[in-house]
C-alpha cells in the first residue's frame, strides 16, 4: 500500500499543473489552430473551411512586420546582454554581503505595472520632457530631433522592460562559478582577461543562453512598447495581431499570424539551441 502510493506520488504532484496546462494552454491552442483555418465574419459566424490561405495571406501582407519584430527582438536582446552581463558580473563577484540588496534594487522598477513603466518612458522621452527639453533649449540637438516614434524608442523600451529576464539567469550562472576555479586559472598563469574569456565567460554562457530565450521570445511578440513609444513606421507583428483580433475581429487571420510567429520563434530557438547550446561551444570558448 505504501509502495503503491509512493509510486503514484509524482503523478499526483504534477496533476494540478497538468490539468491547468491542459485547460488553459493545450485546449485553447487546439481551438486557435482550428480558428486559424476558418472563414467568415463576426456577423455571419465562422465556418471550418481549412482555409490555408489565412497563413499565406498573413505572411504576404505582414511579412515586413515579422521581419521588423525579429530585428527589434535581436537588437533589444543584444542590448539586454550588453547591459545585464556587467551588472550581473559586478553583483556576483563584487557584491559582497549586499548581493541581494543590489539585485532587489535592480528589480525594484519591475514591481510597477508593465504598461505604467512604458508610459513613464513616454513621459521621459517626449519632445519637451526632462531629457530632450533642456537639450533643445540649449541648442544641443536640433528642434526637429525626436526620440519618440522612432525605432530607438521602441528598442530602448523593449530592452528596459525585459532586462531582468536577462540579468537573473546570468547572475545565477555567474554566482555558481566556483571561485577556486577562477583562482586555478590565475594559478596557471592566466591574465585577468584570459581568466575571464577562458573560464568565467564559458561557465556563464548557459545563463546568457537562457536569458536570450527568456527575452527574445517575449520581445519579438511584444506590442505594448511599439504601441506606446513607437509610431506607425514601428509597428510590430504583435500590434498587427492585436488590431486584427480586437479591431477588425478577424479572428482567423489573427490566429494564423499568431501561429506563424510561434513557428518562426520555435524554429529559431531550435536552431539556436542546436548550434550554441552544446558543450562543444563551451569547450571551444575555453580553448
Amino acid at each position: 500500500m505504501a509502495a503503491k502510493s509512493g509510486r503514484l506520488a509524482p503523478y499526483l504532484m504534477i496533476l494540478p499543473s497538468g490539468l491547468w496546462l491542459l485547460a488553459f494552454f493545450a485546449i485553447p491552442l487546439v481551438l486557435m489552430v482550428s480558428l486559424s483555418l476558418q472563414t467568415g465574419n463576426l456577423v455571419d459566424g465562422f465556418q471550418q473551411t481549412f482555409h490555408w490561405r489565412n497563413y499565406v495571406d498573413g505572411l504576404d501582407t505582414y511579412g515586413d512586420k515579422f521581419v521588423r519584430s525579429l530585428w527589434y527582438g535581436l537588437l533589444a536582446t543584444g542590448a539586454c546582454i550588453a547591459l545585464a552581463y556587467p551588472a550581473a558580473y559586478w553583483i556576483a563577484f563584487h557584491g559582497g554581503r549586499h548581493k541581494s540588496t543590489y539585485l532587489f534594487l535592480l528589480l525594484l522598477p519591475y514591481f510597477v505595472s508593465f504598461v505604467l513603466r512604458t508610459v513613464s518612458w513616454k513621459l521621459v522621452l517626449t519632445d519637451n520632457g526632462p531629457i530632450l527639453g533642456p537639450l533643445r533649449d540649449h541648442g544641443i540637438v536640433p528642434d526637429d530631433f525626436h526620440i519618440l516614434d522612432t525605432a530607438t524608442a521602441v528598442v530602448s523600451g523593449l530592452t528596459y522592460n525585459f532586462l531582468p529576464f536577462m540579468v537573473l539567469p546570468i547572475y545565477v550562472a555567474l554566482e555558481r562559478v566556483d571561485h577556486r576555479v577562477v583562482e586555478a586559472a590565475y594559478d596557471l598563469y592566466a591574465s585577468r582577461l584570459h581568466a575571464f574569456t577562458k573560464v568565467i565567460l564559458p561557465l556563464s554562457l548557459p545563463g546568457v543562453f537562457a536569458g536570450v530565450i527568456m527575452t527574445f521570445v517575449p520581445i519579438s511578440a511584444d506590442y505594448v512598447n511599439a504601441e506606446v513609444l513607437g509610431g506607425p513606421q514601428n509597428t510590430m507583428i504583435g500590434n498587427v495581431i492585436q488590431s486584427e483580433y480586437f479591431g477588425n475581429s478577424a479572428y482567423p487571420v489573427a490566429s494564423a499570424l499568431s501561429f506563424t510567429l510561434m513557428a518562426i520563434l520555435l524554429i529559431g530557438i531550435f536552431v539556436y539551441a542546436r548550434t550554441l547550446g552544446t558543450k562543444d561551444v563551451l569547450e571551444a570558448a575555453g580553448r
Binding site: 576555479v181 586555478a184 590565475y186 561557465l203
Partner: peptide
C-alpha cells in the same frame, strides 16, 4: 599568482568543468 612559478593543487581540485 599568475606571475609566480609555483602551482597549486586545490582542495576540491577546482578542475575546469567545461574542458
Amino acid at each position: 599568482a599568475n606571475k609566480r612559478d609555483v602551482n597549486m593543487v586545490f582542495q576540491s581540485y577546482a578542475l575546469f568543468p567545461h574542458m
